[in-house]
Computed example of a mutant assay.
Amino acid sequence: MASQGSTIFTVGTLLNRAQDQGIPVRVLVEGVWIEGIPVASDGHGVIIDHEVDGQYLVRTTAITAVLYVRPDDEAPEPRPSTTSAEHEQPTREAAREGYAPTARKAVSAGSGVPAG
């Protein structure tokens, strides 16, 4: 019987990679996207630096998803396509549309009124 190895990827895996390379990320925290560069982490939390808003301290367990903003020199080469123009993949910039440029204010549960 062949043995299988496994790798467990965590939120911290991608955050550490981004921190080591100084690459911005977007993290989803309780339905809000936060963007910035991870500058420190300790396994329990991460500090994300946003050039305008300041620094966010986020518990790693509160992060649902991490988007690693790949540097342009790491972008994969486009593959030739045999499909018609109407079925082409969206451009990288078009794929980013819909993200808030900065974090949105928290809303109290069920009220629709900003918290705090």
Rank of each mutant, 00 (worst) to 15 (best):
P38K: 03
G54P: 05
Q19N: 09
D20M: 11
E86K: 07
L67F: 09
D53W: 08
R79H: 14
G5E: 06
P78K: 15
D73E: 15
T7I: 11
A18T: 04
A62D: 10
T83R: 11
I8R: 07
D53P: 00
G22R: 12
A65H: 09
S81R: 08
R26E: 04
E30L: 05
Y99V: 03
W33P: 00
V29G: 02
A95E: 11
P80C: 07
R79S: 14
R92E: 08
D72I: 15
V46R: 01
R104L: 13
A62F: 06
T102L: 10
T91D: 10
V107S: 07
Q21R: 15
Y56W: 13
T102P: 00
Y68R: 04
I37D: 06
E88Y: 13
W33G: 00
Q55A: 14
T102N: 08
G98C: 03
E51T: 11
G43W: 04
G116P: 01
A40D: 07
V52D: 07
L67R: 12
A100K: 07
Q89W: 15
H50M: 04
A2K: 10
K105G: 10
Q4F: 08
T83C: 09
S111N: 04
I63R: 00
I23M: 02
Y56R: 00
E35N: 13
V52S: 11
T64P: 02
I8V: 11
I37G: 01
H44G: 00
G43V: 02
D49G: 02
I34H: 14
G43A: 02
Q21K: 15
R79Y: 14
A103P: 05
D42F: 04
S41Y: 05
E97P: 00
K105R: 13
E93A: 12
T7H: 07
